[in-house]
């Protein structure tokens, strides 16, 4: 029972990581950009959400409807005005740019929101849970997992079936060849980042409902998404999802063994995969 419970909690935890991993996998897969500011963007959106919920009294659902377009716009602008200038065969310039952005965002958030931790009241759903045969399953984590699954499936379908998805895959496979086939890679990139960051609009609300948020929390969010993407296989849409599940389960089981061992267990799985299958579990290579 204890282990089944750990498994279920791990999968639910993985749902949260999967939302972060999805955008990272997309940006890496298409542009070879490792977005160091990914976690800080979640925190930024969560803090904007908390402020809006306090100031205007918006509930979680209206907040999502406001934050997702805002996040997509931020992503689009970030790509168009910053990352398109540094994207290329060499991923170091974009790494440095997003690293700088991460630090700038943290300072900006500290300036606006101070170092206090905040959280959002969701009118009860954050604490609601159901008892399934003696195992308590939180409603919010289930919602998060469902959202992550739908988003991953939706993005995967978009990549495989739509005009935009084909352009994305073409630009990822060979940017120059895509350009000579009529694709404007910079426009495609801007939409890709809009999607990657847009997802964080939803994640930001979930994050604020689920935990307390403070401006310095970004890197901790980033590291799990990053590990999930590596475990699953860089650039594979479902890879990030699978990696998130593996990471979540490893952490939950580690936590049952010893509360101090939870995060470490996740890191150990990550290192093991990196050492034995550096291309990731889901990668064909």
């Amino acid at each position: 029972m204890k282990w089944l419970d750990a498994l279920i909690q791990g999968v639910l935890l993985g749902g949260m990581y999967a939302q972060y991993a999805l955008g990272m996998a997309l940006m890496f897969g298409v542009m070879r950009i490792v977005n160091i500011a990914h976690g800080d963007l979640v925190v930024l959106l969560a803090l904007i959400g908390i402020t809006l919920s306090v100031a205007v009294g918006l509930g979680p659902l209206p907040l999502v409807l406001v934050l997702v377009p805002l996040a997509a716009l931020i992503g689009w602008g970030l790509q168009k005005f910053v990352l398109n200038k540094v994207v290329g065969a060499d991923s170091l310039p974009s790494l440095i740019a997003t690293f700088g952005l991460s630090i700038a965002l943290q300072n900006l958030m500290l300036e606006i929101w101070s170092a206090d931790t905040r959280s959002m009241s969701g009118g009860g759903i954050e604490a609601a849970s159901v008892n399934v045969g003696g195992i308590y399953i939180g409603l919010l984590p289930v919602l998060i997992l469902i959202a992550a699954t739908l988003l991953t499936g939706g993005l995967d379908l978009t990549m495989r079936r739509t005009r935009f998805g084909r352009a994305l895959r073409a630009a990822a496979a060979d940017t120059e060849a895509a350009a000579m086939t009529g694709v404007n890679p910079r426009v495609v990139y801007a939409y890709a980042t809009a999607i990657a960051v847009g997802i964080l609009g939803l994640s930001g609300v979930f994050f604020a409902l689920r935990a307390t948020v403070s401006p310095a929390d970004g890197p901790a969010q980033l590291i799990y998404a990053f590990e999930a993407v590596i475990i699953g296989g860089m650039g594979s849409i479902w890879g990030g999802f699978v990696g998130s599940m593996v990471l979540g389960i490893a952490q939950a089981i580690g936590f049952r063994i010893d509360p101090g061992f939870g995060t470490l267990a996740g890191h150990l799985v990550f290192l093991t995969v990196l050492a034995t299958r550096p291309q990731g579990l889901m990668s064909k290579g």
Partner: peptide, 24 residues
């Protein structure tokens, strides 16, 4: 192009569809 430069990982038809999508 020299060396063909096809979109690896994509099907023949998807390679062709990229061109259709963005044609003159």
């Amino acid at each position: 192009p020299e060396g063909r430069r096809l979109f690896a990982g994509m099907s023949v038809e998807d390679n062709l569809k990229v061109a259709i999508d963005h044609a003159r």
